[in-house]
Design a protein around this nucleic acid. Structure first.
Length: 476
DNA sequence: TGAAATGTTGGGGCG
DNA sequence: ACGCCCCAACATTTC
């Protein structure tokens, strides 16, 4: 009897170190499938930037599969129906996939697995997207059942005690052929592509797909990793890896990153050694984010810390939210970040913290509004990481920033963008302003201020809004 | 991966 | 020479 395996690809759009693929390819025929099922996304339908990325990532994956003698089958519609139809037309007797961990998707996968198994199919699910699955790392509580970690350092210590696995599956040269007569939809029919103008804007900054991920990683290792601890703080330079969207879509997995960075960690001394450790700890934050969202499935909407349920967020903030979204707050570093986000689908991480602190604390707008905007505009929008990040900044999450930690975007700018490189790159109105005013244009002499129109004055006073936030947070 | 307020120290200007 | 004041620079505390 011939075995035919359906490989259901979701957020693991790669051929290297893909555990489910490793299983699936030991088969006479292989049916690699991606299903576009907008209804499955519930409260969190991907934004245009994520859709754009997915479109190109699928195209890249199909190309890679074809080089190995296979190709990607696309389905559109309710997952269960599409799967059933593919299984029937391809005469499939085995199904494999890599697990996802977002609460709604976990539920959906569980039901599907049950349904498929009940119809007599062999179903195998794997881990390829995390170093540690969310339920693997737990606190020992002596008396009671294990409990999830809520503090990062303790969590990460436990992870390191287990050891960070860096064994990876090599990319297979040849893959089994696909069964005859299985219909596929055209990529264009998924409707993921935005208008051409946005496409070219994003294309200038990104190369979605497995190859693009490898190029990013290689470049980061060659040029930036050794000074990462310092370089990652300066938004004006390329000091970070920029690999987050590739990770989100699974074009590269965390094990591959640990594996690739290992030669550097072994050879590094002094600050270079600190740098590799700092970078790997960022992978740890990603793991921690998935751990938290899995164990606290409501945390995408509700603060983890219950005291924040009745926090006095502002109610009428319409114009301020729009000014923040559009990068027109009058605070250069904040606006530069928001404009970078809009134009590239990405924002430097330090600037993410600063714009988030500004929204939640200086503007006192609910963090969920910021999380939603990030979700809608980021190419690396990831429910776990986004949720953790926003709850951290707002101070209502696990291991969150203390309430009094309020970033001052002027000081942050002077510290980490002293030449104003970053601000000038994204706010052309300010190009001609001297460095000493670049982060606080409102203090410049009137003659200079006349030249920066239409750049607006600040929508809030930083000192007064800081004090307002402190007063509100102290109420807790 | 914070900022601002407050406290301490020591050099230099000055009468 | 001395005391006084100012203030930059740094340290500590507080939010």
């Amino acid at each position: 009897m011939t075995t035919t395996t359906l490989l259901w690809l979701r957020q693991d759009l790669r051929l290297t170190d893909n555990t489910a693929l490793e299983l699936a390819r030991k088969s006479d025929q292989l049916l690699p499938v991606y299903i576009h099922d907008p209804k499955l996304n519930g409260r969190w339908p991907p934004g245009a930037a994520s859709d754009w990325w997915l479109h190109h990532s699928l195209a890249s994956l199909d190309e890679d599969l074809r080089k190995s003698g296979s190709r990607l089958i696309l389905g559109v519609g309710p997952t269960e129906e599409v799967l059933k139809e593919l299984i029937r037309s391809g005469n499939v007797n085995r199904v494999c996939w890599n697990r996802r961990y977002e609460p709604d998707l976990v539920d959906a996968d569980r039901q599907l697995k049950k349904m498929l198994a009940a119809s007599g199919l062999e179903v195998k699910t794997c881990n390829s997207n995390l170093l540690f699955e969310p339920w693997d790392i737990q606190r020992d509580t002596k008396t009671e059942s294990p409990a999830p970690y809520r503090v990062f350092t303790a969590y990460w210590r436990a992870c390191n005690k287990r050891g960070l696995h860096d064994a990876v599956h090599h990319r297979p040269d040849r893959l089994p052929g696909i069964p005859r007569g299985v219909p596929s939809r055209k990529l264009e029919s998924l409707g993921l592509m935005p208008e051409t103008r946005r496409d070219t804007g994003l294309r200038n900054h990104w190369q979605p797909g497995e190859k693009g991920a490898q190029i990013r990683l290689d470049k980061f290792l060659k040029e930036s990793v050794e000074d990462y601890t310092n370089g990652r703080n300066q938004p004006g330079i390329t000091g970070t890896s920029g690999i987050s969207p590739h990770l989100h879509f699974g074009e590269i997995g965390p094990r591959q990153i640990i594996h690739a960075i290992k030669p550097w960690t072994e050879r590094a001394t002094g600050s270079a050694s600190e740098s590799t450790e700092t970078y790997i700890r960022e992978i740890g934050w990603r793991e921690f984010a998935h751990h938290l969202l899995f164990h606290y499935p409501q945390s995408d909407q509700h603060p983890l810390n219950r005291r924040f349920r009745n926090f006095s967020w502002r109610k009428d903030y319409g114009d301020d939210l729009i000014a923040w979204q559009q990068g027109n707050t009058g605070i250069p570093l904040v606006d530069a970040g928001m404009r970078e986000l809009w134009q590239t689908g990405w924002m430097h991480n330090r600037v993410r913290m600063i714009v988030a602190s500004f929204l939640a604390k200086n503007l006192m707008i609910p963090w969920q509004q910021g999380a939603r905007w990030f979700w809608d505009t980021l190419v690396d929008a990831d429910l776990a990481s986004n949720t953790l990040g926003w709850q951290w900044v707002a101070g209502c999450g696990a291991d969150a920033a203390p309430y009094f930690r309020i970033f001052n975007p002027v000081l942050q700018g002077e510290k980490f963008d002293p030449e104003g490189t970053y601000v000038r790159r994204w706010i052309p109105e300010l190009k001609a302003l001297p460095n000493r005013y670049i982060h606080k244009p409102w203090t410049a002499p009137q003659s200079l201020q006349a030249g920066i129109a239409p750049y607006p004055p600040p929508i809030v006073d930083l000192k007064a809004s800081r004090e307002r936030a402190l007063a509100a947070y102290r109420q807790l």
